[in-house]
Structure formats: structure tokens, C-alpha cells
Design a protein around this nucleic acid. Structure first.
Lengths: 341, 341
DNA sequence: ACAGGTCGTGAGAGCGCTCTCGACTCAGGG
DNA sequence: CCCTGAGTCGAGAGCGCTCTCACGACCTGT
């Protein structure tokens, strides 16, 4: 498959520049402690030969790979339709690129893959891992931590309360939810419903907590579990409208859910926000801005989360658990007021 | 989580098994030409020590990396909302995993990144590349081909007509579109409209060609350019309904567009399919099945496309009875009849 | 002037692995 | 009986790079 022309080596560069391999190496790696005329000569030689360092040889001696694994534990196709991962990936990619790191993508599907991923990570092929695991009962995070690879989680891992030391980046789901519900209450709404996400995901659970912080568990009939999808939102909204009294406000666990709920509300002739005020979560632009009316929602900067995960991992470097060790970050959310509430 | 224990080397395995490093290597790589008792001894040593080959050292001598780059040229955030890439990625990932290859993800954003990607690929860090480039004027594909890396494109590259030798995997967009439109005509519809995708993408352009194969360019007023999004579909549908006479059938360039169009049709009180028959493209399940009425659409197996791309790259083209040189594959589509047409 | 330091450079030792090549063994044929 | 050849195995030479270390050149201060 490979019939590439022989690539120039450092040796060749050194020869052309009339210096030793050691000096050429120094220049390629920043050029500290090399006098200017030589630096220039080597740089030119690199340019002329089109030299690119052989990463394998470099890794062999440095024991660094300048590569980070991104693990997405994703048994369900559905979630792919959510731009959430894509945006985080983009943030991660940008940050890694800025630090000349490569992104090795590991998608898992079922338990067999877990072993494979564990083996890969333990094999020391990458300098660290960024892990997305949605579900509370996922064994993958534990497996990975045991592999002894520096790791940053995307979203608070469900089990992390006691097995401290897990570094993660998350949005302030609870605080954001609280703010949304408080806003609805401030509007004078009294029957504020909540359409949740899948409650085995911490983000959904945390948003429910935020809702309860304000509403208490007063009327459990106002809470309907759903699944973060538009169709699920429709279903949940129908269910809510059948209850008595039906809500005068709805806090949906994400924008997709809110868009589904909105569709049902209009179909049933309820005016938004006059009859029912509606708030979403995420501020996913193509969704939130183009609904009618545009969605009031809780914004979280998803791409920034990704960027931060990468930054945390890279900064933590090879020495995890040492004093400079990174600690988790919870990003603030902001309420974006549009027309729906 | 202190210092990572030094990983065992082949040398250590050999010592424990009482053989030479060469023999240990042979066993690790399949064990051909080594007598059974030794094979077993080495295998046990590997097990006991938890030995994992050092990929860097291996690559250094073999010049293979067992890694494939996936390049997604993506200037626009929008497209991420499309599960299209995600599904292809999943297919690719599965196939690569099955062959013990790693997936290195390269996302590009703007021209600066092109140079970076070119350099990376030319640097010989991966055995091949799978490239997604949507737009006709994208310089990336050319750049990559010049890098001399085995490459398979996802979707027909726009420029490939003359610069032959580009290997790609695509759906039969034109044929699928033709079948859809023929179906509409077969239903007795005479004013069949087409809401296109962005016409600088070959998939959208090919679907338009398929439409024209059946309808000719008779009434250019029946063709509206759009952008593969639900909101775009709404806009285009509104535009179509204002025309005289308004269409009695619509072929939308993808399901997302169709769902937007459907929303407008219902809003305006047009019955589907009685007044206006509607067909989409993709058979994206969460969308196509859950619309009301469920969408008749042209199915393409997106995940299979990804899998095939990877297979083509890894096997150098010796796929599906194709002899010798790798050649492109165009996958057939199938019309899925549901209620909308 | 010389001892002691700093700085810039090159020589060379590996990093862990694969792979060639030669040594050795054991059949079987001449 | 030796010779040939196939089958096993080990010794050792790198793959391309980084990094330590030694060495010479050049400063300082006395």
C-alpha cells in the first residue's frame, strides 16, 4: 500500500547544513542553545529537503506521542444526531492542533470494545484520554482510570462522587436549570413543568435537581421523563397537556426536546409564551433561533468545554496526580432570553 | 497514580520464556516457523508480564503505522448537525477496528489548516487517508493527492472527472433521485418540484441531475435551491407554494429538507400525500419514520459507505471482485415507500 | 598570564523492535 | 558414509531520533 519515496532523515538535513545530527535536532526542536548562523542553515536545509520528523523514532526515545485518545462510549445511534459531540470534538480538535497533538478517535459499541479500548490505552500509545461516557452504569470510565492513563472526562461521571480524583469538565447544569426555572417563576408562572432528559445521564439528572431546587417535589405530576429528542419532547408534552391542571410553563431539558414540545403546543392551539412559557437548554443555534417563537434557553458553550478538556489534559501532562494536577472545571451557563419565555 | 511502571519489553518476555528476542518477536507476530513448545512458553510470558508491543518501535522499522487519517473539511458548523458524518465515521471506525487500525481524526477549518493537514499526511504518519470534502472548490483533495498518500474519498470529489485515479465511495445519488421522481410521475403527478441541496456539493448536484433525467428542464420554476436543513426546507417550500401553479409533488434533496417542507405543507392545510406527494432522501430513521405522515424516501446505507471506504483503503482496492488497482464504488439506493408518496 | 567558568557543538549510546543471515539440527538420498 | 535441503533458532545490525556527556572555544577575574 505504501510506495512513498524515501523520506529525508535528520542525518540528511545535518549533512546538507554542514552540522552534526545533534545540532540539527536542536534546531528542529526549537533551536535553543544554537547560534544564529547555524539555526538559519539548518532551517534552510529542512525547507529544501522538505524534512518532516519521523514521529515513531521520536516517540521511541521521548516516550511521548503527542497524541490524545478521544473515547466516545456510544451504544445508541440516536445520540449521534445530537450535534453535542460534534461540537465538543471540534473544540478538542482545535486545542490539540494548537499544541501539535493528534486526535485518535475511539468509538465503542458494547462490552467487547471496552476491553479493546482498555488494552489500547494501557498500551501507552497515547499521552492521555478524553472520555465521554453518558450512562451511570458504564464500566468504561473505571476501566480507563485503572489503565493509568491521564484522563479528563466530558461531563461529570456518575460514579465519581466517592472515587475522587476524576477530572472532568462540565457545564453548571444544576445552576442553569435553577436560573431557567426561577425566570419562569419570576414571570408569575405557578405550574412549571419539566421535561427531563434520560435520567441515567448526569446532565439530565443535574438539570432535574436544579428544577427541584426551585420547585421542590411539590407536584411530581409536572415532571415527565424524556430522552433529549424532538419526538420524545412531543410525546412528553402531549402527556403533560392531558394532566389537570395543565402547566403554564415548561422547562425542557434541552432545545431539541423544547422544539418537539413547542410543535405540540402550537398544534393544540396554546400560545407561546402567553399560555405556556417555554425554556430549553443548550442554545443550539440552528434549533433555538429558528423555532417560532425563538426559544429562550440556557446557553452552554459546548465547543469551549471540548477545548478546556484538551487544555486540562495537556497541562496535566505526563505526571498525573502530582501537585500540578488539574482539577475539574464546571463552566457557568447563561440564560438567553428570546421570545418563548 | 504515581510513576507508571516501566512497561515490559520484548527482551523481558524473551528472557522469561528462555528464548531469544527474535523468537519472541516471531511469536508475537503470529508465531510462524516456531515450534509449539516455544510458542506456548512465549505466549505465557506475554500474558504474565502483560506485554504490549511498542507501536513506535515497531513502526520505526516496518514503516507501517496501522493508522488511518480521517479528514473532514468542514468550514461550516451546520453540517455537524447532520448525522451523516457521524454515521460514516461509525462505519469507518468499525472496519478499522476489525483490522487493528487506529483512526486519526483531522478536522479542518479554513485554508491554514489545509497546509497543516497536507504536511501531516505527507509526513507519513499514517498509512492512508479517508477524505470528506463537500465543496467543489475545495483545494484540499488535490493537496492530499499530491501528498502521495493512499486516499479514498467519501462522495464523488467534484474535480475528479479529469484528474482520474481518485478512488471514492458514493451512493448512486442520480439513480436514486431518478427513481424517486419516476415514482412520483408514476403516481400521476405532473407538477413535480425539487428542493435541492447546496449545489456546490456533488451529492446535491447529482440528485438534481437525476430529477432532470426524468423531468427535463421544462419548468425551472419547480426547482428551488436549498441547503439540506429543515429550516431551509421550510423556506423553499413556502417559495414553491407561492408559485402558480403550485406543485402536486415534491422531491426534497434529503429527509431534513423534506421534514421542513412537510411542516409548511401541513401549516398551509395541504394534505400529504393527497394534495402534494413528498419524497425525501437518506432514510435517516429518527427523521423519516417519525414525521406525520411517515416519509417515503430514498435509502442509502451511510454506515456501509464508511465501512467500504475503510475496506477499500486497507485492501488497496481488492474488493468485491475488483482486480488489481483500487477503483471507486457507487452503492445502490433503494426507494422506501411509506405514507408520504 | 592562567585557573575557572560558560557556551556551543559533536560523538555516541541507546529507545524497542523487525528482519536478515548464518549456525545448527535432523531427514533422506546418493 | 557424506551431502543437501528444509526447518528452527539466535546474533546482531539497524530504523531515525533524542539526550547525555565530553571537548574545545571563548570569556571572565585575579
Amino acid at each position: 500500500m505504501t510506495d512513498t519515496a524515501p523520506r529525508p532523515t535528520l542525518e540528511a538535513v545535518a549533512a546538507r547544513a554542514g552540522v552534526s545530527r545533534a545540532t540539527a535536532s536542536r534546531v528542529v526542536n526549537g533551536g535553543d542553545g544554537v547560534r544564529e548562523p547555524l539555526v538559519a542553515r539548518v532551517r534552510r536545509a529542512v525547507e529544501e529537503l522538505g524534512y518532516v520528523p519521523n514521529q515513531a523514532a521520536r516517540s521511541l526515545v521521548t516516550r511521548r506521542h503527542d497524541a490524545v485518545a478521544v473515547v466516545i462510549a456510544e451504544p445508541e445511534t440516536r445520540v449521534f444526531a445530537d450535534p453535542f459531540f460534534a461540537l465538543q470534538l471540534r473544540g478538542i480538535s482545535k486545542e490539540l492542533t494548537a499544541h501539535d497533538n493528534q486526535l485518535v478517535l475511539l468509538l465503542t459499541e458494547g462490552r467487547d470494545d471496552h476491553a479493546r479500548v482498555g488494552r489500547y490505552l494501557a498500551g501507552g500509545h497515547v499521552d492521555g484520554a478524553l472520555v465521554f461516557s453518558l450512562h451511570l452504569d458504564d464500566p468504561l470510565p473505571g476501566l480507563i482510570q485503572r489503565a493509568g492513563v491521564p484522563t479528563v472526562f466530558g461531563g461529570r461521571p456518575g460514579w465519581s462522587e466517592d472515587s475522587g480524583g476524576a477530572v472532568y469538565v462540565d457545564s453548571d447544569n444544576r445552576g442553569g436549570a435553577r436560573e431557567a426555572v426561577q425566570h419562569l417563576v419570576g414571570l408569575g408562572r405557578t405550574r412549571v413543568a419539566h421535561i427531563t432528559g434520560p435520567l441515567d445521564q448526569t446532565s439530565a439528572a443535574d438539570r432535574l435537581e436544579g428544577y427541584r431546587d426551585v420547585m421542590g417535589d411539590a407536584d411530581p405530576g409536572l415532571v415527565v421523563e424524556s430522552d433529549f429528542t424532538p419526538a420524545g419532547g412531543e410525546r412528553a408534552m402531549r402527556e403533560l397537556l392531558e394532566r389537570h391542571p395543565s402547566p403554564d410553563a415548561v422547562f425542557a431539558a434541552n432545545d431539541l426536546t423544547a422544539s418537539g414540545a413547542l410543535r405540540v403546543l402550537r398544534e393544540r392551539g396554546r400560545r407561546v409564551p402567553e399560555d405556556v412559557a417555554l425554556i430549553g437548554f443548550d442554545d443550539m443555534l440552528p434549533v433555538a433561533e429558528q423555532t417560532d417563537p425563538p426559544l429562550t434557553t440556557v446557553r452552554q458553550d459546548i465547543e469551549e468545554m471540548g477545548r478546556l478538556m484538551a487544555r486540562l489534559l495537556l497541562r496535566g501532562g505526563a505526571e498525573q496526580g502530582v501537585e500540578g494536577a488539574p482539577s475539574s472545571v464546571v463552566l457557568p451557563t447563561t440564560l438567553v432570553r428570546r421570545a418563548s419565555a
